[in-house]
Design a protein around this nucleic acid. Sequence first.
RNA 1: GUGGCUAUGGUGCAGCGGCAGCACAUCUGACUGUGGCUCAGAGGGUCGUGGGUUCGAAUCCCACUAGCCACCCCA
Length: 423
Amino acid sequence: MNQRPQKFTAVKGMADVMPPESRLWQKVEAAARGVFGCYGYSEIRTPIAEPTELFRRGVGENTAIVEKEMYTFEDRGGESLTLRPEGTASVVRAYIESGAFLSEPLARYYYMGPMFRRERPQKGRQRQFFQIGCELLGVDSPIADAEVMAMISQFLSESGAADVTLEINSLGCPDCRPSFNAALLAFLKKSESKLCADCVRRLERNPMRVLDCKNEACAELTKGAPSLPDYWCETCRAHYDEVKRALAAMGVAYVENYRIVRGLDYYMRTAFEFTTTKLGSQNAVAAGGRYDGLVKSLGGTDVPGVGCALGVERLVLLIEQNKEPLPAEDLIFFVVMGDRARFEVLPVIQTLRRDGVRVEWDFAIHSLKSQMRRASKLNAETVVIVGDDEIAKGVASVKDMRSGEQHEVRIKDLPQHFVQVDI
RNA sequence: GUGGCUAUGGUGCAGCGGCAGCACAUCUGACUGUGGCUCAGAGGGUCGUGGGUUCGAAUCCCACUAGCCACCCCA
């Protein structure tokens, strides 16, 4: 039996980003670099894999991520490594390892790159997914929290994302959260039998999640539940109020949502999400918050931090819905007839490209019509035609595809012609 | 991990027991050297995989695999 060669497909939950979609990604990345730069952030690039223990301690032993979603493997030296499920732990590790936390504790980093979580893929959720994130370390001022939100907000709007809402909350601190959790747990225990199966499980794990349940019975039940703000300590309340004050001063719109919860253990006080209703069930485009204890728990000194992470796949889905037409290409297409013309024109094309002009042409010997069609399809601004007639005269026909006007330029003058026109 | 839906040229789909089709895309021509519009033609598919029922299966049945959507969780 003759076997066909095996067809390969991308690993489940790991998608290719093909053109023209990749242009949108570049646009998003460029917007991030631009905006984050304006806020004083510098890029940090950390490895894609870390010691497993970093995430166990950094993200939290009892989180869904650590319990069942990590890509963990043993390398050939016997060390347990994990493909990063999120960015913050790595950034904090690098911050500590480099000694930056001692020499220059105030640091602003941004990163972009793939993260890995082994979940069941669905709309806006991949196993390998791309995050853009920022971390502001060494500042405990609530204004820093607000500044991060303002920056993400600006980035989202410059990327072309519409219909995004900023929701804020405070999760309390190690001093006051336990009392809220105890009160909530006591309240929920009373009606445990009426809760859905998922929520019964949440009682053990993270009672605050019950507040977020979409089940109607649960939502009804939690209407009279203890409210987070009633349990904030003075410090947390003051911090929260100051965040709101700063947001107002910066002109950043927000809504308060006391039911926002965090899936990672390191968050305290400020928690926020940028949400949308346009992505199916994945409503969070970006999310972040304050994590004052994390640096210390990973072996540094007691440096506070606040950060945010943003899902690029989700953002791109959002931008695509706005259907902004792609701008016309700044492209010169060379239509060449015959081998003689081809080699006549080759040095010209090379010169133009070295000058930074975008040039395309057809390698195959196609008819003039076919090459024109291709130029048109590529949305070329200008077409340069070189055939036997032109060769005989030492000229090229230069055609403006918008107006259809055409004139002759000497072949050797072409580079100068286009460079001058462009400037 | 659980559930629902789907699987037919590159892409999107029709066909639901009797010769595998349409649209878009690709290529060619009408226009012997001038694009977008129009028209004509061409190439391209072991109908996801494996088994079963049947004279005959893309079509009916079973299993598997993959994809999508939702739950869970999260960016």
